[in-house]
Amino acid sequence: MFLRTIAEDDAIGGVAEIYEKQKSQLGFIMAATQCFTARPDLLPIYTDFSNKIRAGFSLGVREWRLITLVAAKHVPSTYCAYVYSQQLIGDLGSKQAVLAVHRDFRTAGLSDKEVAMLAYAEKIVLNASGIAESDIDGLRSAGFTDQQICDIALCAAFRCFVSRFFDAVGAGPEAAFIDDDAEFRTAMTVGRSY
Results as ranks from 00 to 15, higher is better:
75 V>S: 12
10 D>E: 15
98 V>H: 04
145 T>V: 01
29 I>K: 00
60 G>W: 07
4 R>D: 14
194 Y>D: 15
110 L>M: 02
163 S>A: 15
184 F>P: 05
27 G>E: 15
75 V>A: 06
174 E>C: 06
80 C>Q: 05
40 P>E: 04
190 V>P: 13
163 S>P: 14
71 A>G: 10
29 I>Q: 01
35 C>E: 04
55 A>I: 09
157 A>H: 08
135 D>N: 07
140 R>W: 02
136 I>H: 00
104 D>K: 03
135 D>Y: 00
175 A>C: 08
89 I>H: 03
70 V>A: 06
182 A>M: 10
144 F>W: 03
151 D>V: 06
152 I>P: 09
59 L>I: 14
48 D>P: 01
120 Y>N: 06
6 I>W: 00
155 C>F: 00
60 G>Y: 06
46 Y>A: 13
128 A>E: 11
27 G>A: 15
124 I>C: 12
148 Q>V: 05
164 R>K: 11
149 I>Y: 01
150 C>V: 15
91 D>R: 00
71 A>Q: 09
33 T>V: 10
15 V>M: 09
20 E>N: 15
10 D>Q: 10
48 D>K: 14
103 R>A: 12
184 F>G: 10
46 Y>D: 12
127 N>Y: 14
167 D>R: 14
16 A>N: 07
58 S>L: 11
167 D>N: 08
171 A>S: 10
